[in-house]
């Protein structure tokens, strides 16, 4: 299957997804379930990764800013900028593409190969809308929360390292407050909304068109993660150019 066929099939799928739901109540129920499944169950991994990456970045910044010409608070400042601009949106979403993307693709793929999607269609249910719309809406809604969590815990990780003596905690705190541009948070959140849509829609696409058996579901899951990651990286460049440069 060539690129144009994928684009056509993906567009047709999305046209089916973004239609009026048959029952708003059911959409609301599923939306809440997706927020819990994709969002709340991703908080722990987000917190753990952010603390450790925040700590590592701080240590690296201490080494890279070891210059008497540079004020000590530069360590905190550069840690903050790295976390806000790139880690808490792009890198976090790449990690979530692995967790959430593979989950979505395998869930929908399994429904496909066990005829559950056919059952929905024969009942007269718009399967695309019923299955995929809550996942996209749920993930797009919860990702900004995860990004904010990641920023906070990333900076906290840096602070924890600062308390061990590699840098003065007060200088670190001064650095993370110095010349703070709130737009960077907005920029990061806007990027994450795009990335969340990419992860949820591409993973749903690969799951929805998985045919065969367990092997195909595995392939769909792998494709979902790989393709989502590629598009996240591509859109990272495009959005940075549009929003920041």
């Amino acid at each position: 299957m060539n690129l144009f066929e994928h684009v056509g099939r993906y567009s047709r799928l999305m046209a089916g997804v973004f239609t009026k739901p048959q029952r708003w109540g059911i959409l609301w129920k599923q939306y809440k379930a997706e927020i819990e499944k994709q969002g709340l169950q991703s908080i722990l991994i987000t917190v753990i990764i952010s603390i450790f990456i925040g700590s590592a970045i701080t240590m690296q910044m201490v080494l890279n800013t070891e210059n008497p010409m540079l004020p000590k608070y530069v360590t905190g400042l550069t840690t903050r900028e790295t976390l806000l601009l790139e880690f808490s949106s792009t890198i976090l979403c790449l990690i979530l593409a692995g967790k959430v993307g593979s989950n979505i693709a395998s869930e929908i793929g399994t429904m496909r190969i066990t005829e559950q999607i056919d059952a929905l269609k024969i009942m007269g249910v718009n399967a695309e809308n019923y299955l995929i719309l809550p996942k996209i809406l749920g993930f797009v809604s919860i990702v900004p929360v995860l990004v904010i969590f990641s920023m906070f815990f990333g900076l906290l990780g840096g602070y924890i390292i600062a308390t061990t003596g590699v840098i003065s905690p007060s200088q670190y705190v001064m650095g993370i407050q110095y010349a703070f541009n709130p737009y960077y948070v907005t920029y990061s959140i806007i990027k994450s909304l795009f990335f969340a849509f990419i992860i949820a829609s591409i993973s749903s696409y690969y799951g929805y068109y998985a045919y065969g058996g367990a092997l195909e579901v595995g392939k769909a899951s792998t494709n979902a993660v790989v393709k989502s990651s590629i598009f996240i990286l591509l859109f990272n460049v495009i959005l940075t150019d549009l929003l920041l440069v």
Partner: peptide, 18 residues
Amino acid sequence: AILRREVGMLFQGSALFD
């Protein structure tokens, strides 16, 4: 769509929602 509601189907693998 209306006809679909008049149709019931039993699938080979049951196709119950997990």
